[in-house]
Design a protein around this nucleic acid. Structure first.
Lengths: 114, 114
DNA sequence: AATATATACCTTGACAGACGATGTAACTCG
DNA sequence: CGAGTTACATCGTCTGTCAAGGTATATATT
């Protein structure tokens, strides 16, 4: 893991919702997918993941239900709600703005000769 | 303030160091400058700012000293150290990586017909 | 002379998100 | 049958942020 979690902090819910925006899924799969997409550089810790699920369900962004697996471990599936979709799009827009701002704020002024 | 601090969280120190990278400065000025650069959309709270100064000084990234103002309120100036410069450049590189990763992770897969 | 505003510093207590550690349980493979 | 994988879940701790409060000097207004 080379990406420190401090930098991701605050984006966990958005990342999860992005996933559920495309298709319903379950915790373990979401986490594996994030690991793959990050090339192994980042993984959500389980406590973080399930904590985020709880918050998202509490605020009505997702709903959960047990899958009917007949083999293997049981899975709790999550599905994004309409409210969750809106919340996600808002969060993503906020991210775009924050990204621009941080880029601006951590740019050093090595131009200074005009 | 439209940018929530949760999204900036973890970048406060980097933002401060970016500022001190260009020139030595003091708390109040740094904060004002951030407000201006953000177009009023973001400001560091003072408790956050001074907390960050304390951490940065503790880990040797900055040194501080009282200015010799003969008028107005006294100022505590901060100067970035060599260690601080390295820390800043590392942090900025981490940000670049984290930014790419988050962009990737919150992108929805609306392409899916090939 | 009192009041307000701006500059400038600083601390305390509380909160929220992230994490390490730990636990449960079912299946799989050698 | 023991080790590894899949899969869920919680508890206590740590850390960064913030609201609220405080100190002090200088200038402008009333």
């Amino acid at each position: 893991m080379s990406i420190t979690a401090d930098l991701i902090r605050g984006h966990t819910e958005t990342i999860i919702l992005a996933h559920l925006f495309s298709r319903e899924s379950y915790g373990y799969e979401i986490n594996k997918s994030i690991q793959e997409k990050s090339g192994g550089k980042y993984e959500l810790k389980e406590a973080t993941l399930y904590g985020a699920f709880r918050r998202l369900e509490e605020n009505g962004s997702i709903v959960s239900f047990w899958g009917n697996e007949t083999t293997g471990a049981r899975r709790r599936y999550y599905r994004i709600t309409e409210h969750g979709k809106k919340y996600f799009l808002d969060s993503r827009a906020e991210w775009e703005e924050a990204r621009k701002l941080i880029d601006k704020l951590i740019r050093t002024e090595e131009r200074g000769n005009e």
